[in-house]
Design a protein around this nucleic acid. Structure first.
Lengths: 357, 357
DNA sequence: GGTAGCGCGTTGAACGTTCAAAATCTGATT
DNA sequence: AATCAGATTTTGAACGTTCAACGCGCTACC
């Protein structure tokens, strides 16, 4: 009675052996239906839960996934990783897995932390985020035969669909392309792209979508003139946007909501009509964008998380121990259109001012 | 050679018993100095790491903490919990603990999840967040004798420092008080408070700080007139702020950055002077506030996390198993002053507009 | 009627660690 | 030289689970 029930204590109470209890739960087909009917309700009623440490010791499986928690650099765009974290926790939980967090100052530290976790805490698999060009982490994980799935393509020169490891990613280019098409339909012809300096896989991908849409529409892209790469911040976004508007852009597709917020401010500076449509589209559909009424490209993070877990679990149960070719999933982004509240980020009507101290 | 070293394999290799290796690592004083000198470097070199499942099975300790991951409702203010999560992971890691996440739809679900975690995965302790009035979770945890620390006071009528469980919290009232004093020093006399409907512990606490500062300065608070409680969103903040300004407020202290952002927009509507100081102060110093140049009250989240872990660990190692009185830590908030970039959330100079499509 | 096979259930062993008790060694004291 | 205390090391057992092997009873087949 006292203490939690174990296989042995339960077995004694029910007059069967521990293995029968274990089988009733894990391999019911091996147990006679009549015993099953007698034993299962009793187990249920006892509130028995297998102790993970015992199971882990024997099976070498922990039902534990791990992921590095990044410091959200900007905080605005960092929100996307927080959404991912939440969705991943839920997806893992649905499949009976838990998510353990760890931090690391850099990629090297992350590899060290993974190494440590592997040798102490049987973690079954890892989730990699923020993959980038020449990512040393994937190389290490592959070499050490560690099950993992990356959120993010390998941004190398080779075809990502030929990559030796599984990944899930969002087709950002399709998102910026949709955004561009939307602006074209609104009558814009000189649509600029406000992004980051060339070289970041994610940024180049988003820029590519914008360019493809312009090409497809037969509009002269004036690519070099109407595209700009700046640091990812609101202030830089405002500065960059002013520049692009000065070059004749009438609308902007941005690589992030941070940049877009800056761009909106810059645009409002030059367009005193409060009711005018705001021709700026951001990326990631962050809470700030929603709060300010900014249109933005949304990543299907919940699906990304779901797929990530699915691929990871396949990795564990995969037939001949991972001989199956790694799978790669590219999900489409979607455009979220909003009409900004004219009183936010907005213009003052020429009414009376407020009292001053 | 093949496979990871275990106590037994190491012992065989070094010609000592497993227990000696174990002692060398966990209780060096029990081992002869000469053996220690011989054995320790060899252990180090072997890369041996104790296997947590084995240890956990024997010691009933997992060195694992767990916390519920909330869906960040607003997303702007949710950022505070994400900061906490990060800091907590780091603090736990420093002390050799890991953090496991779980989700739950509500408090009842959280208790169920904790119950489940307790019976399967020896979790050593839990961290509770977002405590509120009449929190059923603390009652359950206390009753079941589960080690936990709350981030947040128990918002009941009794003296929180007499609470039967340990907690860490930030003195939000001191923050809004500082903010109010700052505005008083800038010459304001009619300072309003824009918060949430009465009844939320956190909100009432922040409102209390504002009121105390006004009382102390001998300024007629006109409490009812200049204080307003609305839903926590940017739009509601703008609406509420317009209301307060109309009642003669010249400055606002807000219970959140969401509200403050709305308030800034409302204020700009009525004050066409772009260079004027913005008499609005937010709460939580979220990334958005930083990006927009909004002054805000900052919670020392890193210290909160540090203290939370410290109290939790004390709970485990506490002399006679937790007979010591629970500890309560209240940390001061600090005021972060900023000058907003006049081009963000800003006014358009009456210059030429931008080209239109 | 022997035996092969199958269904079902049990037992022994092992995963890697630490606690508790027993065994051995060292040096000093009688 | 025998004894004892204390320091150091080793051994047995246990934590809770699952794998592998084994045992038993029954049926079917030749």
């Amino acid at each position: 009675m006292a203490g939690k029930p174990t296989l042995v204590s339960l077995a004694r109470e029910l007059g069967v052996s521990r293995q029968t209890i274990s089988n009733a739960l894990n391999a019911p087909h091996r147990v006679n239906v009549r015993t099953l009917e007698r034993v299962l309700p009793a187990i249920e009623e006892s509130g028995y839960r297998p102790h993970v440490a015992g199971r882990q010791l024997r099976t070498r499986r922990s039902r534990n996934l791990a992921m590095r928690l990044f410091a959200s650099a900007d905080g605005i765009n960092g929100a996307i990783l927080d959404r991912f974290l939440h969705a991943l926790t839920e997806a893992a939980q649905r499949d009976g897995y838990r998510l353990t967090l760890f931090t690391a100052p850099d990629d090297e530290g992350e590899v060290a932390a993974i190494d440590e976790l592997l040798s102490t805490a049987d973690i079954d698999g890892f989730v990699l985020t923020s993959t980038h060009h020449d990512d040393a982490r994937t190389a290490w994980l592959l070499e050490h035969d560690v099950p993992f799935v990356a959120f993010g393509r390998p941004w190398s020169s080779e075809d990502p669909f030929e990559a030796p490891h599984p990944w899930v990613d969002v087709d950002g280019g399709s998102g910026t392309s949709d955004a561009t098409v939307h602006l074209l339909e609104r009558g814009h012809r000189r649509i600029g792209f406000l992004g980051w300096p060339a070289g970041s896989g994610v940024g180049d991908d988003r820029r590519g979508g914008w360019q493809r849409a312009l090409d497809a529409a037969g509009v002269d892209p004036a690519t070099d003139e109407l595209s700009l790469g700046v640091e990812d911040s609101v202030a830089e976004g405002a500065r960059g946007a002013r520049d692009l508007f000065a070059r004749g852009a009438t609308a902007l597709v941005c690589a992030s909501d941070s940049l877009a917020i800056g761009a909106v401010a810059a645009w409002r500076q030059g367009t005193p009509d409060a009711s005018a449509e705001v021709p700026v589209i951001g990326f990631d559909d962050t809470p700030v964008a929603a709060a300010l009424g900014l249109s933005s490209v949304r990543q299907p993070i919940e699906q990304v998380a779901e797929q990530t877990v699915t691929l990871l679990l396949k990795r564990f149960t995969g037939g001949a121990g991972g001989t199956a070719a790694p799978e790669h999933v590219l999900l489409p982004a979607s455009l979220v259109l909003r009409t900004p509240d004219p009183h936010l980020l907005g213009l003052p009507p020429p009414g009376p001012g407020h009292p001053r101290p």
